[in-house]
Design a binder for these strands. Structure first.
Length: 276
DNA sequence: CCCCTCACCTGATCGC
DNA sequence: TGCGATCAGGTGAGGG
């Protein structure tokens, strides 16, 4: 589910709710969420810690704790945080974790749900977080994401452009929805070998990456079915998708029929008329 | 190293 | 209504 814009929206929401708050207790309802940590170790690591602030790195949600460790969460496909002032812990389907917090803006419970159980959440010290951080690619909305940086990311790759955009170790945060929308906006065929782009095309691609991600953040992400923000709100970017999940419809730019192809086992959508 | 396939899960949807 | 096949926003292990 969540890609960079959804992770950013969630992180901002969490920051508003729990920055400065102290963890009273954490309960792990499904231990696979914290594997390979044990539920007890996770619980203990969070207990009595104050959350300094919440941000994200790529698609990871990163909460910095007052002991310098990081509580990091990978939402994968269906991971979802909710914040509520209601402390009652019911037995709910898909509830993986609940964290009771006392904060400057009031007390509340942060809950984590995950239908497909792919999500992971850990408390890591700097030595454990650093290699994960280092392995992730450049942040596409940072100053470091120059045309030169993108050129280097693409250089020598014979893989389809869409696949390279999905590789978190090259550029961090782009998932399948936005990869397809980015290729459309850049007028680039997602099947093109990534290393074969000309300089002008790389510049177009970089600009499209930033424009699509910025606009998606502005619209608080894309909600098809699962994704919701911390307060349960839906995103709005699904209303402006140009190609994703639109096979058979007309391209609004040139009128050709949008095609679906499978690249690396996942759907890619593009207009054969205007994406070259 | 590069790149693809598959497995990991549950639930929604579609065709019969 | 039921049932099986297929697909889904992610990612890492394994293999060619």
């Amino acid at each position: 589910m969540p890609e960079l814009p959804e992770a950013e929206t969630i992180a901002r929401g969490l920051n508003a709710c729990i920055a400065g708050a102290r963890v009273e207790r954490a309960r792990v309802h499904r231990s696979e969420l914290v594997e390979p940590m044990t539920a007890a170790a996770f619980r203990t690591a969070l207990r009595d810690r104050r959350v300094e602030r919440v941000g994200r790195r790529g698609k990871w949600i990163v909460a910095i704790l007052d002991d310098g460790r990081r509580w990091v969460t990978q939402l994968r496909m269906t991971g979802r945080f909710t914040w509520s002032e209601n402390s009652r812990i019911r037995s709910e389907p898909h509830l993986s974790l609940s964290v009771r917090l006392q904060g400057p803006t009031g007390d509340g419970t942060l809950r984590f749900y995950d239908v497909r159980r792919f999500a992971r959440s850990w408390v890591l010290d700097q030595a454990a977080w650093a290699p994960i951080d280092d392995r992730l690619g450049v942040e596409p909305l940072s100053d470091a994401f120059t045309a030169a940086a993108l050129t280097e990311v693409l250089a020598g790759s014979r893989a389809p452009l869409r696949n390279v955009l999905l590789d978190q170790n090259r550029v961090a945060g782009i998932g399948n929805i936005y990869a397809n929308e980015i290729c459309y906006l850049a007028r680039l065929d997602p099947c093109r070998p990534a290393g074969g782009l000309e300089a002008a095309e790389v510049r177009r691609l970089r600009s499209a990456i930033q424009k699509v991600l910025h606009e998606a953040i502005e619209r608080r992400g894309t909600s098809f079915s699962d994704y919701r923000d911390v307060l349960g709100g839906r995103g709005e970017f699904q209303n402006v998708l140009r190609v994703y999940d639109r096979a058979g419809e007309r391209c609004e730019r040139c009128g050709n029929e949008i095609q679906r192809v499978v690249l690396a086992g996942r759907s890619a959508f593009f207009c054969p008329g205007c994406q070259i």
